[in-house]
Design a protein around this nucleic acid. Structure first.
Length: 597
RNA sequence: GGAGGUGUGGUGUAGUGGCCUAACAUGCAGCCCUGUCAAGGCUGAGAUCGCGGGUUCGAAUCCCGUCACUUCCGCCA
């Protein structure tokens, strides 16, 4: 349990978590919910719960017959007010599991402030309840102490962020939610306007341009707990509206920002969780290194099992599947899975499916059993090759070697998925460890086959290394950006960059992305013009706040760290939003709905 | 847009062709009980097994379709 809650002092109300042996003899009034009732016939015990804790109340007919009579009617989740005397519990009935377990309140009066229907799930114990029901009755779900802990943790983290940044000269600025749509990136949520029928605002995917404009304003250091919106498919760690800790600073190098954010994350982790940080200062690796060793730009560094390139040993292989891939400029990579040589045919099929679901055409396996090599491809491999693919990459008896041959992107994706799978299967992902790391030097651009143009890897405002300037024409795919991502345990927590602060730089990037000067002016005129008026060098970062809290709270779903989240289809099941609107509302907006298919 | 998983009293689960007139726990209702703290004991109510169709003498169970939830791929500058 983290020390993240405080007892209120302003109202003078005594909470259900505050009474101790010292309070014995005091007359008190407690208010809260009935967590549990234990009716022994003569005596009735009530565990009274509020956000701050649980206190046992005892109703004794010999002390107050009227109160005891009312207590007969109490049920779970009734809201009551109890007046009574704080007593030491009798010898032998102290409950060491409760912080208030040395005392109880002897009730002299009780008032039922509100009754409650039987809740659709248990408030007083944690369980794995149907999420649809939890979301429909979210106010009850949030009544559960474990959910309140998360709400509090999030509050503490956000408050710490604000204080931390304030102490360092950052200014919190609110930026508008009704902005202009730009078709790049994710699909925008659109908001129609009645003042301009047929025209739309968009909700921001991030305050990117706005915070850069604040740097042009000379604000020097900006932050915001910024709500962002993206109309894309949901995931366990993605919501249509989410919150970022958004930061921008002037006159910085990437290192300045990384150091600052690293301090912030270390402080938060160590203050509010009991998790161990795997390595301080956070390791830094380039994008290429991350892709090479882990096949992933957000690797889970809690375990090894790195990808190994075995192409060199297979230059002359007779195994056609490998030879063909290598001849076509592809690669063959392997991971060594410890202790899984005894995998059954069925288990091998299972992991092959995982590889295929992640784009691989197949999965080659070698099982190093006590009886020797077991592998469907062994017969195609020379003795030297067999050695290279086993002991040559550190595999020993009892281990399982997994190999994928394909174009680098396919190999990376599939092997990375397998690595993550075995990290879980083999319990290598210690939930008490936070393996933070920075990934840097992403490629500025990657080639979009469909659009036949270069696309910004991160965002189009990301700056690039001056020494790569000469690649702008010849080899745009190899320009290194000044981007940095903070990853932890296989999650991308945040990303940012030092930006283009000159119009000419920014135009070059837009140009490579296939945006004509006219389109650039139309969509990004404001920022481009601003860059002409003494824009300082600047850069920033945005942290996924929900994702960060999720990880620190040890939750597996982003929905568990958002008070009122949407479900997997973006539906708010409590309010049943989105919902149709009145025809009059559409008329005001100049909108007509197409008939449904 | 695609693939997988799940769907059985309020809740969590069991049941994978007949023994199911659907079981267990908990919750709920009633009764008993003065030191419980996941209180205990007894009694009881509560599910046409997501929905529709099919196969079969017989379907919670097999098949097809559909819906919902969920995970992943695509998507997420």
């Amino acid at each position: 349990m983290y020390a993240i809650d405080v007892q209120p002092e302003v109202t003078g109300r005594i909470t259900c978590g505050s009474l101790r042996a010292d309070n014995a003899g005091e007359h008190v009034t407690l208010k809260g919910w009935v967590n549990r009732r234990r009716d022994l016939g003569g005596l009735i015990f009530i565990d009274l719960r509020d956000r701050f804790g649980i206190t046992q109340v005892v109703f004794n007919p010999e002390v107050d017959a009227a109160a005891h009579e009312i207590a007969n009617k109490l049920r779970n989740e009734y809201v009551v007010e109890v007046q009574g005397i704080v007593n030491h519990r009798p010898e032998g009935t102290i409950n060491p599991k409760m912080v208030t377990g040395e005392i109880e309140v002897e009730a002299h009066h009780i008032a039922i402030l509100n009754e409650s229907k039987t809740p659709p799930f248990y408030i007083n114990e944690d369980g794995d309840y149907d999420e649809a029901v939890r979301l429909k009755y979210r106010y009850l779900d949030l009544r559960r102490p474990s959910m309140q802990q998360i709400v509090l943790l999030r509050h503490r983290i956000v408050k710490f962020m604000r204080d931390f940044l304030d102490e360092r000269g950052f200014v919190e600025v609110e930026t508008p939610l009704l902005i202009r749509s730009t078709p790049e990136g994710a699909r925008d949520f659109l908001v129609p306007s009645s003042a301009q029928p047929g025209e739309f605002y968009a909700l921001p995917q991030s305050p990117q341009i706005l915070k850069q404009l604040l740097m042009v304003s000379g604000l020097d250091r900006y932050f915001q707990i910024a709500r962002c919106f993206r109309d894309e498919a949901q995931r366990a760690d993605r919501q249509p509206e989410f919150t970022q800790l958004d930061i921008e600073m002037s006159f910085i190098k990437p290192d300045d920002l990384m150091d600052l954010m690293e301090t912030l994350m270390i402080e938060i982790t160590e203050r509010y969780t009991e998790r161990q940080i795997m390595q301080k200062p956070f390791p830094r690796m380039t994008y290429h290194e991350a892709m090479d060793k882990y096949g992933n730009d957000r690797p889970d560094l809690r375990f090894g099992m790195q990808l190994q390139n075995v192409g060199a040993a297979l230059q002359n292989t007779e195994f056609k599947a490998f030879a063909g891939v290598l001849a076509a400029g592809g690669e063959v990579k392997a991971i060594v899975v410890p202790g899984c040589a005894d995998y059954t045919r069925k288990q091998i099929d299972e992991i092959t499916e995982i590889a295929k679901a992640n784009g691989a055409k197949g999965l080659a396996t070698i099982q190093l059993t006590a009886d020797g090599l077991k592998s469907p491809i062994a017969k195609f491999l020379s003795e030297d090759e067999q050695v290279a693919l086993t002991t040559g990459i550190g595999a020993g008896e009892g281990d399982l070697v997994l190999m994928i041959a394909d174009q680098p992107a396919v190999v990376a994706k599939a092997l990375s998925a397998l690595r993550d799978e075995f990290g879980k299967r083999l319990n290598l992902t210690d939930p008490n460890v936070m393996a933070y790391a920075w990934v840097v030097e992403f490629p500025l651009l990657d080639w979009d086959e469909e659009g036949q143009r270069w696309d910004a890897t991160h965002n189009p405002f990301c700056g690039y290394f001056e020494e790569d300037e000469h690649l702008l024409e010849s080899d745009p795919g190899n320009i290194r950006s000044k981007q940095y991502d903070l990853v932890a345990n296989g999650n991308e927590l945040g990303g940012g960059s030092v930006r283009n602060h000159k119009r000419s730089q920014q135009e070059k990037v837009f140009g490579l992305m296939g945006l004509s000067p006219e389109i650039q002016e139309d969509r990004f005129g404001s920022i481009l013009t601003a860059l002409e008026y003494g824009a300082p060098p600047h850069g920033g970062i945005a942290f996924g706040l929900d994702r960060t809290v999720m990880l620190l709270a040890g939750e597996e779903s982003i929905r568990d760290v958002i008070a009122f989240p949407k479900n997997n289809r973006g539906v708010d099941v409590m309010f049943e939003a989105p919902a149709p609107v009145e025809t009059e509302q559409l008329d005001d907006l100049g909108l007509v709905l197409k008939p449904k298919q």
